[in-house]
Design a protein around this nucleic acid. Sequence first.
DNA 1: CTGAAAGCGCTTACAG
DNA 2: CTGAAAGCGCTTACAG
Lengths: 351, 351
Amino acid sequence: MDIRDIARLSGYSVGTVSRVLNDHPGVSVRARERVLEVVREVGYEPNTNARHLKMRGRASFAIMVKGMQNLLFNDIIEKAEGLFAEADEEARVHFVDEDADEVARAAHLDKIRHPKGFLFLGGDPNNFRGSFDQIGVPCVLLTNTAEGWGLTGLSSFSTDDEAAAEAVIDHLWECGHRRIGVLGGNRKVSEVSEHRLAGVVRAFEAHGARFDVDRWYEPCRFSMGAGYEAAMRLLERADDLTAVFAFGDVIALGALRAATDRGFRVPLDISLVGFDGVDVSQYSVPRLTTVRQDAGLLARRGVEALLAATRGKDARAVHESVPFRLLRRESVLSLLPASTASAVGVEGGRS
Amino acid sequence: MDIRDIARLSGYSVGTVSRVLNDHPGVSVRARERVLEVVREVGYEPNTNARHLKMRGRASFAIMVKGMQNLLFNDIIEKAEGLFAEADEEARVHFVDEDADEVARAAHLDKIRHPKGFLFLGGDPNNFRGSFDQIGVPCVLLTNTAEGWGLTGLSSFSTDDEAAAEAVIDHLWECGHRRIGVLGGNRKVSEVSEHRLAGVVRAFEAHGARFDVDRWYEPCRFSMGAGYEAAMRLLERADDLTAVFAFGDVIALGALRAATDRGFRVPLDISLVGFDGVDVSQYSVPRLTTVRQDAGLLARRGVEALLAATRGKDARAVHESVPFRLLRRESVLSLLPASTASAVGVEGGRS
DNA sequence: CTGAAAGCGCTTACAG
DNA sequence: CTGAAAGCGCTTACAG
């Protein structure tokens, strides 16, 4: 069953059939109706290979996801898929290993698959510097800012990681915490961790103190297992900590387990803060105080920008940050005698 | 840069170039080497649309995932992707809403995309009965058994849900629990829940008791939020429960939160058992007693069967169950005075 | 072993 | 508004 059959059955030529199928102008109402009738009758579906061969590729969008453990990415994928579907566009998600080269992989896909554009969830600047120039279609990076990478044609939407980390430290500081451990992604491959760490350092300075990186910072991947191990190392090394700030909820959950295993009650003996505001963080015992990244907005801004770029509306790359929110829940204890704890949430982010 | 350029550059015809690219026999060593050299030099990648147009589709495999909340599926996807890659096959994952029709979606994909085969993660028998006959390529269903659905061409690999649920109840029973609540997927669309519930009922009968479905069973979707709500309803209705068995770890985690909110300590005031053996279950406080489904083996058997089927090796559909393991951790309390708790794990599953 | 040619199922100028 | 025809980039009988 191909377009010629439809042409024959409807009494029109393949050209006309193709035109109604693609909603091109210049087809009589009669022809359109007749063709659609036949199409419906026989359940005809055009062959996408042939179609794209002619239309020079540009099939769908590709969502490149770095790692499968990051629950925040799950939320973003879900939203983004919906958004693409609304815009009547196809999107394919490709998972790439946390330490694999997502950009090289995308460059390869670009060659063989000709997607209309790429949406990156997470990304390593080194990889981008390495092979981004081999990608010829619009790209958007999410959760990471690409500002200052010097890459034209790459827009990015992210949380202001530095400000968010500062807000966390400020909150902890207000609650009387001074010795704060930090659990974070590997600085070499995770720029977000770099930014969050910078925020931590800056916040300490703002309070006239100094963050002891060597002693208080323990890098790790974004998984519960890694968070658990890292927390164990950190707690071993610095047993006088009153609080721990993890650069991901998933890490925080691993740390919660580790703290418990070492006999610390959270938050009674040690306070804990996460990052991301992923679903689980609200069901843990205790509920996790965390920075909520706006997955929905991140997805929306990213998809919109990508769509606009592929439609040639605006070629200029933009770098925006999306508001975050410090969710004060149960995992932080105030060390102060009578806490005049401020209201409910700290918001942040410039756009 | 297309095949003609390579032909020109190498001094051979496009036919010869195509033959070496496809590893066809009947090409001289000289020609092969020369062509590959040029290909490498210019970084040529054949256009897959054109290729598949000729080869009549059959591009890659499709993994149809029902729901994005089920962490077990994440594990399976990760393994399956690796396996496909090892076999040098492409696999595309498609997420379909938990209550959308995954089979209709696959049938549509089959028409327009011509995948080599489908790997379903989760599935509703009604949907399969509805439009499975429209799919013309090999299919494998994972985590659900399709035995007795009367569908030729659909193999399945799963955990023996009924036996696993029985093992859970037996374990709880041994620990002295008699009033056990059950939190599970919607029976209408989740056959696994049906099977697990049957196992619960059977186990009660084996112990000479009766499971009060109306009072003790509360259906819900497979998410923490749903688990939380369902547990709230259940605990409200039956406040004399000493244990709760959730048909998914994610549900159990929601229930853990709910129990805590109602002032129950787990396992002191109420015991809790999950299902799946997903990563989080081992980091929660307390660590969740659960049934571990073997995601790795499920993925391996599934991919192997699919590959074999598409290669025409074995057309007969098979239905196998893969061994499960009852992981006894911390969320179950023994109500007996001096417990002679048996060793470490209960295993199960026939194959 | 190699080349010339037909054809996969579409789209899109080009005429009319 | 419609049709006939060229062509997208490949693969694969068919000759040689």
